[in-house]
Design a protein around this nucleic acid. Sequence first.
DNA 1: TTGTATGCGTTATCAT
DNA 2: ATGATAACGCATACAA
Lengths: 341, 341
Amino acid sequence: MSRERKTSGNPTLADVAKAADVSAITVSRALRDPGSVSSQLRERIESAVRSIGYVPNSAARQLASARTDVIAVVIPSLTNAVFADVLTGIYDAAEGTRFQIQLGITNYSRLKEQELLRLFVSQRPAAMLITGSDHGDEVRRLLRGNDCPIVQIMEVGANPIDMQVGFSHEDAAGAGTRHLLSKGYRRIGFLAGQMDPRTQRRLAGYSRVMHEAGRFDEALIVTSSKPSSVVLGTALCSELLSRQVDPDAVQANNDDVALGAMFECQRRRMHIPQDFGIVGFNDLEFMGVASPSVTSVVTHRYEMGRKAMEMLNDAIAGRRPAQPSIDLGFELVARQSTARI
Amino acid sequence: MSRERKTSGNPTLADVAKAADVSAITVSRALRDPGSVSSQLRERIESAVRSIGYVPNSAARQLASARTDVIAVVIPSLTNAVFADVLTGIYDAAEGTRFQIQLGITNYSRLKEQELLRLFVSQRPAAMLITGSDHGDEVRRLLRGNDCPIVQIMEVGANPIDMQVGFSHEDAAGAGTRHLLSKGYRRIGFLAGQMDPRTQRRLAGYSRVMHEAGRFDEALIVTSSKPSSVVLGTALCSELLSRQVDPDAVQANNDDVALGAMFECQRRRMHIPQDFGIVGFNDLEFMGVASPSVTSVVTHRYEMGRKAMEMLNDAIAGRRPAQPSIDLGFELVARQSTARI
DNA sequence: TTGTATGCGTTATCAT
DNA sequence: ATGATAACGCATACAA
């Protein structure tokens, strides 16, 4: 009297095998490597698969082959256009490979990140792609213990867990600020939402350049705990303008904030770039067509996602990159919003 | 002579069981339902888990329990802010449940959608969430064959596969166009990128209202095969203005296009709303703070994702919704860009 | 509350 | 080229 057990109910390899009058393993082979089976059997098997409506059970496959086709990706936010671009690069690079993306969103929370990574590690992904380079000790331990390839994206730091691809946020923001100084702006504000690690480094870049120019003033820095947005940009700019610091420009932490700042200035009938200069960060597509167009620091978001995924693909295939740390750099695009003089 | 086989190498339930000197099934229970095990054993087990560094193998769990904790989600695009919001709602609603999201991006391709769905179905997800209501016969068959709960989002159509949550794009766009007419605009253009099914319905809504008002003119419609963007909005608006139709307003297919149209008008020193009215679609956050602020049709994107996920959760738990089709509606927010008279 | 035996659907290993 | 058999790691069914 055999025990009853819940099955998935779906057809299995054995069902196909019976229908095609071959063994299960032959069906398995025919599906994974059609060349390894005689064309006669292959045809019989394929028609059996179709008529039965067989689809492989990936859990069973994983269990038997002790490998996954999952690549875990952890990013902080979906609504930030930056990560939409990064993700597009990731998905594009995953296209055509056998890998699927398992996506986790941290909402910029350390705790959430830890929970996600713990969950993902339990799924034994083929590789992991994570955002940033600041991770708690527990996370680093978790990841070091896991022996799959790991890429950290967005930043290039001193101490990568495995591989990394990004750029220097400090240098990039510094370049924006330096551009403003070169255009004769002097009382340059810094506007930022939510102080995630990258934002802090951008602030550091701004501060360094301002200090070097002897123009640093704490009161020029306006930040908020809210996530960046165009709306927040208007509020931050409004706050800056209300302070008694007579600002003549801003370095925005990102383009949404920059656009908000521009709208706020326009609302106040200020003249850009004559009275007020604006520099954004990331160079989202709208910056070039805004009226006036807005200067920004170009970051290579899509390439970052794409390159990271390619590195993972290679690493999984055993091709370790010669260069485990890749700096994608940045560029400054000067536009009307700083075209003074 | 037992056969050697490649194992994952990681500790298993059996390892923990040995270390804690209990049976494997007790460990399994202790982990899934701590209350079902005596506190003595539970402690021993938990410390063994920690010291060994055990993490469950989800493939094995899936195989043994014949159920997955994966919910498949298929959307057309990541860079479209609309779907970023929808996804945020989805992820938020999945938070705290045992479910993980498996995300697929179709890039608005029918073929890609079919491939993705085939892949996902093979993974026997606990539920599926898919975008739109236009699917090829093969896809409908694939999904009908699959007996998991399915929600279609974005639209409410006549023939849902299972459940749906959305709104009428035709009515929504019609409301925007009607608003323009009510403000005295007459030669109202329609600007759109990529003609996905929702865009076509919005165009239909615009056309219907224009016909009813006796103002329809094919030449007022400007579309492109490129994906919507602010940049495209400037190009479409420029094209419209170059046609000999003397347009005095536009209904944009979405807010990016609307913003682009506004920038183009500003570049040409046109006066909004006196000379030219603009209505967007979706009401992304920047519409309210743009200068001038832009009228738009509010869609409930976050709620759509959230509600859809909640319906799936309920359905998985056996609680079929009384109402399998939910219309979330829309609202019109009138702002400066149409505040004429 | 705890344990034993067994099976989930597939692939690796060995054999022909 | 094809097949028999034994795992993969866990949870179900049943027993104690």
